[in-house]
Computed example of a mutant assay.
Amino acid sequence: MRTFRNILFWIHLIVGVATGLVIAIMSFTGVVIAFEKQLIEWAEREVRTVQLPAPGARRLPVEELVERVRASGSEGQPSGVTVYPEPTSAVLVSIGRGAVSYVNPYTGEVLGNGATGLRGFFQWNVGLHRWLAAGGDNRAVGKAITGASNAVFLFLAISGLYLWWPRKWTLRAMRPSLWFRRGLKGKARDWNWHNVIGFWSLPVLIVLTASGMVISYKWASSLVFTVTGNTPPATKGPPGSATVKVPAPEEETPRQPLDVLIAEAQRTSPTWSSATLRLGGGAGGGKEGVDAVTVTLREADAWPLFSSKQVSVNPFSGEVAKQETYADYSSGRKLRTWLRFLHTGEALGLWGQLVAAIASLGGVFLVYTGFALSWRRFFPRRRTNSEPGEDAAAQSEPAV
C-alpha cells in the first residue's frame, strides 16, 4: 500500500507539472467567462430597449429588419433572429457565430452591434478555454490539448483525494487539511493552501472535469447514452441538432413570411420569453424533403432552467411539423444536456455559476501551489533555520 501511494504521488506530481499551465489557463478563463451572458445583457441594456411609437404600433416584417442589417454593412451574413414579447424590446439579429445587431422593430433603424468590445473579449477567452485560441488547422490541435488536460485534471482531483485521505480520522490530524492556518510561509503555506483548496473544491472540480470530458470526446458523450440504455445519436454535433425534414411542395410554392412562422411557433407556448429563428430552411429536396425552419422558444419559469422548446415549422405551409421539449428527451439526452450546463454552472442558475467560478479559481491556486511545492521538492533551499510554521507543516505533509 505504501509503495502504491508513493507511485501515485509521483504520477500526480509529474503529470500535474506537465499539464499545469494548460489547466491554469482553462481554470482562469473558466472564471472569466462564468457570467458572460449576464454581463453582456447588462452592458447592452440600453440598446436592447426602444421607444414604443404608439399603443399597438405596427411592427415591420422580420425580413425587412434582416435586410436593414445586411444593408448596414455589418461583416458576415445574418444567421438568426430573436424576438421578445415586450413591445419595447429591440429585435436581435445574429451575424455569423459571435456578432449581433439590434434593430428597432418599428422604424427599422439599426441600433448598433451592442457591446462589441466585451463580446470580443469573451469570445477570445472562450477560444482560449476550448482550443488555446488556436486558429485554422491548429484549432484541432489546441482542442486535443485542452481535452487531454481536462482529463488529467480529473485524474489529479481523484488521485489528490486518495493522497489526502487521512490515516487517522481525528480532528487534530485533519485540521491542517480542512482550513487555512495563519502565520504560515513558504512550503508550509503552499502545502496548507493546496490541501484546503483541493478538499473544498474537489466535488465541483470533479463535476466540471467529468462534464468537460463529455463535451470534448465523442466516446464519452456516447457512453452517457449507453449507460442510460439509449442508442447514441449518429449525427455530429449536440444531440437533437439534426434538421427536421418536411415534404417538398409538389408545385412551386412561395415561402411563408418569417413573422408567420415565428407566430405559429409562439402559439405552442403562451409563456414564451424569447423566440429565436435560425435563418435558412427550405433547402434540400427530393425524397428526403426540405429542411423545416426551427424556432427555439425560451419559456418563463421553465424547469430545468436551461430547457427550451424546439418548434419545427414547414416553411411553405406554415404548419408545425414537430415540437420537442425537455420532457420529450430520452434519459440519455436529458443526462447529456444536464452535464453540458453543469459544466458552466448554468444548470443551477446564478448560484451554480458562482460555485463553478469559485471552484475554477481554486483550480488556478491548485496549479500555483502545486508548482511551488514541486519546485521546493526538486530544488530545496539549504538553510539552517526554517521559517515559522514550516516545520509543523513538514510534519503533517505525507512523507513520499
Rank of each mutant, 00 (worst) to 15 (best):
L128A: 14
L128E: 09
L128N: 07
L128Y: 09
H129I: 13
H129K: 14
H129P: 13
H129Y: 14
H129D: 15
H129F: 11
H129N: 14
R130G: 02
R130P: 06
R130V: 07
W131F: 01
W131I: 01
W131Q: 04
L132G: 07
L132S: 06
L132I: 05
L132R: 03
A133C: 12
A133Y: 11
A134W: 08
A134H: 11
G135S: 09
G135P: 05
G135L: 02
G135C: 04
G135Q: 11
G136M: 04
G136R: 07
G136L: 00
D137A: 12
D137C: 03
N138T: 10
N138C: 06
N138P: 09
N138Y: 09
R139P: 01
R139Q: 12
A140R: 10
A140P: 00
A140K: 13
G142F: 13
G142L: 10
G142A: 14
G142K: 12
K143F: 10
K143I: 02
A144I: 04
I145D: 00
I145W: 08
I145Y: 04
I145P: 05
T146L: 03
T146I: 04
T146E: 08
G147A: 05
G147S: 01
G147F: 01
G147M: 03
A148T: 14
A148Q: 06
A148S: 10
S149A: 08
S149E: 05
S149Y: 00
N150V: 04
N150G: 15
N150M: 05
N150Y: 03
N150I: 07
A151D: 10
A151Y: 10
A151L: 15
A151R: 10
A151C: 11
V152F: 02
V152N: 03
V152Y: 04
V152W: 00
V152D: 00
F153I: 08
F153E: 14
F153R: 08
L154N: 01
F155Y: 12
F155P: 07
F155M: 13
F155L: 15
L156W: 02
L156I: 04
A157Y: 13
A157I: 03
A157Q: 15
A157C: 15
I158Y: 02
I158G: 06
S159W: 02
G160C: 09
G160T: 07
L161H: 11
L161M: 08
L161W: 14
L161E: 05
L161P: 03
Y162S: 01
Y162N: 11
Y162L: 10
Y162V: 14
Y162A: 07
L163H: 11
L163F: 09
W164D: 14
W164M: 11
W164G: 06
W165D: 05
W165Y: 15
W165M: 08
P166Q: 05
P166W: 06
P166C: 08
P166E: 03
P166R: 12
R167W: 13
R167Y: 05
K168C: 00
K168S: 04
K168F: 03
W169I: 11
W169H: 15
